[in-house]
Design a binder for these strands. Structure first.
Length: 334
DNA sequence: GGTGCCGGGAG
DNA sequence: CTCCCGGCACC
């Protein structure tokens, strides 16, 4: 069934035609609904397809993935055989700390094939790796149907921490170098019938190192090609369930049904663990408890003295520009 | 009330 | 863009 649908989809121009995404459900028929969002645009590859005849392709492939860290992405999954109403799950990721940017980010390409943690620096390299190693194709062949795009994702790596990060690149067995590393592993359970949203920040904006690993236990069908890395050969699962584990930075997301929900806390650098624990519980309490109908969950105030406090109002010209403009202090960061 | 800073406006 | 400030949440 899946193979048939995928064959249809891969050969039909409708799949690649965003404007016809609304009628994608008709195409698949019998409850299999799959369509592409009109908003899709990728910096890496806009076209993708599945070749159902290729036996090396996992039987229940994950949705097309493209990790475009510069954009937020939206995932909509629809995947039940007998469910008439559209069941979708939206995940929108956004940067937890847009203020902290690093210039030393480098885009790497990570193979998402199960049990393969290959990371290469070029997309062509990772595609060749996937073609030859996983798809069993001739490595010299230039033939590419874009399928390889599915099986790798872009990750941004902070070159400052790359030296230590590369050796720790196996997300499933995070390094224990250093005192009590903080590896929040969050499972995001999405309701079966309600859309769930998750906010995430594009890695490029702040993550000091984005050695991130997202695993999906759900063979979903994406209506939008998205940037969530997944294991292509993961078995299908009845639940929409995504577990996100970050090596760094510690970012916690939780998908909740209903309106856009974000539980986020981040800390970069020194006071990693204590900050996280306190802020996690704090923000979590804010969102879960209905004690006070606060309008927005603001980031807890940092402990560091800022320019205003250090120099005082009279020496305002000594402040950093951000403080002068009443923005987040750039000189005394937390 | 002081402080930090988000959101938004002016130029 | 830069520069500034209202206003809000935190302390």
């Amino acid at each position: 069934m899946a193979a048939t649908v995928l064959t249809i989809l891969s050969t039909s121009p409708l799949v690649l035609n965003p404007s016809s995404s609304a009628s994608g459900a008709d195409l698949a028929g019998k409850g299999w609904k799959e369509s592409l969002s009109a908003s899709y645009s990728s910096s890496t590859s806009g076209n993708w397809s599945w070749d159902a005849s290729d036996q090396s392709v996992p039987s229940t492939p994950s949705p097309p993935l493209s990790n475009d860290p510069g954009k937020s992405f939206l995932l909509s999954s629809q995947s039940d055989d007998n469910i008439e109403e559209t069941e979708s799950t939206h995940f929108l990721f956004e940067d937890p700390i847009p203020r902290k940017r690093k210039n030393s980010m480098k885009v790497m390409f990570k193979c998402l094939w199960k049990n393969c943690e290959k990371v290469l620096s070029t997309s062509s390299g990772i595609q060749r790796h996937i073609r030859t190693v996983h798809l069993g194709r001739n490595g010299d062949s230039d033939y590419s149907d874009g399928e390889e795009d599915f099986y790798y994702s872009e990750i941004e790596v902070n070159m400052d921490t790359l030296s230590e990060g590369l050796s720790n690149l196996t997300p499933t067995s995070p390094t224990t170098s250093g005192p009590a590393p903080f590896f929040p592993v969050l499972t995001c359970d999405a309701s079966r019938s309600e859309p769930a949203r998750m906010i995430h920040t594009p890695l490029s904006q702040s993550a000091p190192s984005a050695l991130c690993h997202i695993r999906t236990d759900h063979a979903y069908q994406a209506t939008t090609p998205v940037s969530i890395p997944s294991m292509p050969s993961d078995p299908p699962h009845s639940e929409d369930r995504i577990s996100v584990s970050w090596q760094s930075p510690p970012v916690i997301y939780k998908a909740l049904p209903g309106p856009m929900t974000q539980i986020r806390t981040v800390s970069i650098g020194e006071k990693r663990q204590p900050v996280n624990h306190t802020t996690v519980s704090k923000t979590h309490a804010n969102t879960t408890s209905n004690a006070k109908p606060t309008t927005g969950t603001r980031k807890p105030r940092g402990e560091a003295k800022k320019c205003r406090k250090v120099y005082g109002m009279e020496k305002r010209d000594l402040w950093c520009t951000a403080c002068r403009w009443k923005k987040a202090c750039q000189r005394f960061t937390d």
